[in-house]
């Protein structure tokens, strides 16, 4: 039984189907799990992605890119390999890639995923498979996420508590920002301001039918006391911040679970919320797939694969795919 996916210099490649999942280098056929920059790179000839991912991928790749789409659950045969996308719960249009081919059995590549509820995308779908390729961004037992609704409540309290000041909340512009806006909408309908980098992602989400908190662009607005502003982390410390006068800052990220990181980053507040699975989420997912073999990519690969081997008796191995040090959209 031949391996359906193998490590190649271009990334996780499928020799039978002659495509690469989230290629690191330009290839002929790229299968994209989701639209974050560390998964969706320009330069390949053909792209295949989930339907809701396409507008976001188009923004990244340009008008000329050749993108083919597939709805969740729809099957496509590529050189005899049956491929389908299934919700990964990471962000809008994020997909696990399910592959089936002859005697190789069923392979599922998770892409980035989480198990917590997220109003901006379909929940993670458990797939039975023989081989599961999982991410491990937060796969250490110290990582556990709180109920996102409670985190949204804490953000709202923080915003309301900063009455005389602007509340500047930093987060990833694509995915996390929209998730926060959708969560906040369940608690308030008060409009907030967004940085220009969030404008297009918000438009795409709304066009896909995702309901977000009403947003306003900064424009020439001068008064921000008592207002919430969502901005990408790159705006921090830039001259763009001057307009807010007196302000409080916060960052929303899974990284902030650790006190040292919270303190070193020096934000006034840290909200622990992540779009990657926590340790129990990863373990639960692997158990539910019923797989006997696990490949671990990204994050704490060595620790998770050793744990799965020694404690769960699985055939687990770390795969090294060259990646940028920080995963996006955490």
């Amino acid at each position: 039984m031949a391996d359906l996916l193998i490590e190649t210099p271009e990334g996780l490649g499928c020799p039978s189907g002659r495509f690469v999942i989230d290629p690191l280098l330009p290839v002929e056929r790229a299968v994209i799990t989701h639209a974050h920059g560390d998964h969706a790179r320009a330069g390949s000839n053909f792209y295949l992605c989930q339907t809701d991912c396409a507008p976001l991928l188009r923004r990244r790749l340009g008008a000329d890119a050749r993108i083919q789409t597939l709805a969740y659950g729809e099957r496509l045969s590529i050189d005899g390999v049956t491929l389908s996308f299934h919700p990964a719960g990471h962000m809008l249009g994020s997909a696990q890639v399910r592959l089936e081919h002859g005697t190789s059995g069923v392979w599922v590549c998770s892409g980035d995923y989480k198990r917590e509820p997220d109003p901006t995308c379909l929940p993670f779908e458990t797939l039975r498979c023989d081989v599961f390729i999982t991410e491990a961004t937060y796969a250490l037992p110290i990582f556990r996420w709180d109920d996102p609704a409670a985190v949204a409540g804490a953000i709202l309290d923080w915003w309301t508590g900063n009455a005389g000041k602007a509340s500047v909340l930093f987060c990833y512009a694509l995915g996390k920002a929209q998730r926060l806006l959708a969560e906040l909408l369940r608690k308030t309908d008060r409009a907030c301001f967004i940085h220009g980098a969030l404008e297009i992602p918000c438009e795409v989400y709304r066009a896909a039918g995702v309901k977000l908190l009403p947003t306003r662009l900064i424009g020439d607005e001068k008064r921000f006391a008592g207002e919430l502003v969502l901005a990408p982390i790159t705006a921090r410390g830039s001259p763009w911040m001057k307009r807010f006068g007196d302000f409080e800052t916060a960052f929303a990220s899974g990284l902030l679970r650790v006190r040292g990181t919270r303190r070193r980053r020096g934000f006034d507040r840290g909200f622990v919320i992540s779009d990657h699975a926590d340790f129990q989420g990863v373990l639960r997912t692997i158990a539910e797939t019923g797989c006997s073999r696990v490949l671990v990519a990204h994050g704490y690969r060595d620790a998770l694969s050793r744990y799965l081997r020694e404690e769960r008796g699985l055939d687990a191995r770390a795969v090294s795919l060259l990646r940028e040090p920080d995963a996006e959209g955490d």
Partner: peptide, 24 residues
């Protein structure tokens, strides 16, 4: 060994213990 791996990330034993107890 997994505890040690985690405490290397956290950088503090008392905090590692608290996070672990909360998560497991």
């Amino acid at each position: 060994w997994l505890f040690d791996e985690s405490s290397g990330v956290v950088g503090d034993l008392a905090e590692t213990v608290a996070l672990l107890l909360d998560a497991v």
